[in-house]
């Protein structure tokens, strides 16, 4: 049975992914969307923990998620690139869009759980959830700029 804290972490991970979910299930679109989510979470956490700290968290979360998700077998965490996960686009046509999305959800879940064990689940959830709010704020700004134009 999944422990409650994992359920909460997974729920948040799914919400993060759902926000960027593509209209169609095309593997390329799913891969691109999941990469975007990771990039946003990574950027938000970097403000707190620095790039090195965030990289370390993502790398560990990826290793953890890879054990249960074959779709992530050849996915690598890029330490320098702005795209945090590499290999999703290649994996999607082989394993399917759903398997890739599940794999990324597992990475984010593992990341939230790991962060929760280190600094407490309440703070971990709040910090990762802040990525959603930051996204919403960025969207609002973009919409405003478009309307002005």
């Amino acid at each position: 049975m999944t422990p409650p804290e994992s359920r909460t972490a997974e729920e948040l991970a799914r919400r993060l992914l759902a926000r960027d979910a593509p209209a169609q299930d095309a593997p390329d679109a799913v891969a691109a969307a999941t990469e975007r989510v990771c990039g946003r979470v990574s950027a938000n956490l970097s403000r707190w923990f620095g790039i090195d700290g965030t990289n370390a968290l993502f790398a560990r979360a990826l290793v953890r998620a890879q054990t249960d998700h074959p779709a992530l077998a050849n996915v690598r965490y890029s330490r320098q690139s702005t795209v945090c996960l590499e290999g999703l686009a290649e994996s999607a046509p082989i394993h399917g869009a759903e398997a890739v999305a599940d794999g990324v959800a597992a990475i984010l879940t593992a990341l939230i759980e790991l962060l929760g064990r280190l600094i407490g689940q309440d703070i971990a959830l709040r910090l990762v959830e802040h990525s959603l709010q930051a996204d919403a704020a960025a969207d609002a700004r973009e919409t405003g700029e478009e309307n002005q134009q």
């Binding site: 403000r47 707190w48 923990f49 280190l118 709040r126 910090l127």
Partner: peptide, 27 residues
């Protein structure tokens, strides 16, 4: 920051509910 939060939140003065809303860490 990761380690700082981990250890500092052991103290009773640490208020997790203020993290982000009242106390923001910037690296």
């Amino acid at each position: 920051t990761l380690k700082m939060l981990r250890y500092q939140r052991q103290f009773r003065f640490f208020k997790p509910e203020l993290i982000e809303s009242g106390v923001r860490f910037v690296n």
